[in-house]
Design a protein around this nucleic acid. Structure first.
Lengths: 144, 144
DNA sequence: TAAATATAGTTATCATGATAACTATATTTA
DNA sequence: TAAATATAGTTATCATGATAACTATATTTA
């Protein structure tokens, strides 16, 4: 992520960005602040999840299946299209979630390549247990 | 980072955060947006750096040394204290930068444990070559 | 309809983040 | 001042991100 603890001052930034417009300077300062803030958020959230034997990615996989209207399973490639991670990373995360029995994978009848991924009862329970704490955690990280 | 392409709608969020105040809901929506934005920024920036045989971390190490007033070297632990990464990660990044001859490491006379890390001429040149593109890149990512 | 191309998913491998446990030296305390 | 503690940095190992190259199946095109 973005690891600089102390963001450059306005003066420092000016030294490096003399060639840019005020608008661009402003948006760069904002970008640095956004990256720094997000880094701290992501860290805090990952700490929360790892205490629950999850990760942000695993959680997002569960959420994406859960929030899909009118269906209770998604194809792996549909999950992939909703999340911005590479396919191998998704394959690995799904494997772990299946091994942990939070998800179940079923072959599709019409397309033999595809896999239907669904929440198990345990997965749904896990998600609902972890959700309130997730939002509380974010909320408390934001108010720091 | 944060990989959800489509952030939850207000309604969706409401479904999951019934127990929270409007203020908290708002800050959660903001947190998700910040994490998503930062993820895209960091990706774009990393792409820029890897085309230049650098990384965001390596770049920040160079910057932190360069921007230090009145000194042209920092101890490794001083770099560590300015950047929010673990020590082993810093050790490894410094090793690579030294191998690439962008940094030089000198033993300290009074404290035999410590290492003084300085930019080489090549390192200073590299930094000044890469800096304008860095800010241009951020600026263009921000306006997307 | 056979050959070419596209799609679904996996395996192998690498890069870069982390923690735990370590060596060596410096500093503090009993 | 010897023993205990703190500090500087490294090594070993793991987790999780990426890309390249792959198998198997489905779809399109010549």
């Amino acid at each position: 992520m973005f690891f600089l603890k102390e963001l450059p001052t306005r003066a420092m930034l000016n030294k490096y960005t003399g060639h840019l417009s005020d608008n661009e300077k402003y948006s760069i300062a904002e970008a640095l602040a956004v990256m720094r803030k997000a880094s701290l958020l992501v860290r805090g959230i990952d700490t929360y999840f790892s205490a629950n034997d999850l990760s942000q990615l695993k959680f997002l996989i569960l959420i994406v299946i859960d929030r899909e209207p009118d269906r209770d399973s998604l194809y792996a490639h549909e999950i992939a299209s909703r999340l911005d991670v590479s396919r191998p990373v998704l394959t690995r995360a799904l494997k772990k979630l299946i091994a942990d029995e939070l998800l179940i994978s079923n072959d599709d009848e019409t397309d033999k390549r595809a896999k239907r991924i669904a929440l198990t009862k345990k997965g749904a329970t896990c998600l609902s247990q972890v959700l309130p704490g997730y939002f509380d955690k974010i909320s408390s990280l934001m108010s720091e």
